[in-house]
Amino acid sequence: MQHTVSSNTLIKASLAATVLAAVVLVTLILPAEYNIDPTGIGQKIGVTALAQTAEPATPESAKVEGTTEFQSIEVVVPAGRGVEYKFEMQQYEKMTYEWLTDGDALFFDLHGEPEGDTTGYYESYVIATSDEMKGSFTAPFAGSHGWYWKNKSTTPVTIKLLVKGQYKVIGLKS
């Protein structure tokens, strides 16, 4: 027994398959593979995290997504100078961190600058002098967040910074 399919049935099935493919593309494939989420559904169901963890390794100067594993970063603060190391974070994103120096204590300011602000405004969260710090942080607003370290000694100081969470590395700011 042979079945014949009418052209109307074939057209309807083709249209249904095309619509279904478009929905899957926009809601699952683009968010999971490319972190492009025009509907916001990918974020809600958690598939955008797949794109963030699947990105290839990039140079330190490039933006890198945060992870659930600690990322180790080395920052050298020259003698008598200061450096700033920043991360891009969205509002309420979290970061766990730990840093320590290979020697002298440094003056530091853990702070954030709101996204798009051109006035020079920044908000300090911790200002102190120490050779180590450990904690967690939730971004109160979208923008760049991180540390300014000032080395008042006559020799360079190397910081080992360990971070994990939700962020993109901006890196050293000049």
Rank of each mutant, 00 (worst) to 15 (best):
Q2P: 04
H3V: 12
T9L: 13
S14E: 10
L15P: 00
A16W: 00
T18R: 00
A22H: 03
A22F: 09
L25C: 11
L25W: 14
L25G: 12
V26F: 07
I29M: 04
L30Q: 02
L30P: 00
A32Y: 02
A32G: 07
N35V: 02
D37F: 04
G40Y: 03
Q43P: 02
I45P: 05
V47H: 07
T48W: 01
A49K: 13
L50F: 10
A51F: 01
A51E: 01
A54V: 01
P56W: 04
K63H: 11
V64D: 01
E65V: 03
E69S: 13
E69T: 09
F70Q: 08
S72M: 14
V75P: 11
V77T: 04
G80K: 01
G80I: 03
G82Y: 08
K86N: 15
Q90V: 13
E93Y: 06
W99P: 09
T101A: 04
G103F: 02
H111E: 09
H111G: 06
E115S: 12
E115G: 03
G116V: 14
T118E: 15
E123D: 10
S124Y: 09
Y125Q: 13
I127N: 05
A128M: 05
T129C: 03
T129M: 07
E132N: 12
T138V: 15
A139K: 05
A139C: 06
P140Y: 08
G143M: 10
H145N: 13
W147F: 15
S153M: 00
T155C: 00
P156I: 05
P156D: 14
V157N: 00
T158F: 04
I159D: 04
L161C: 09
L162S: 15
L162A: 14
V163N: 05
G165W: 04
I170E: 14
G171P: 07
S174V: 08
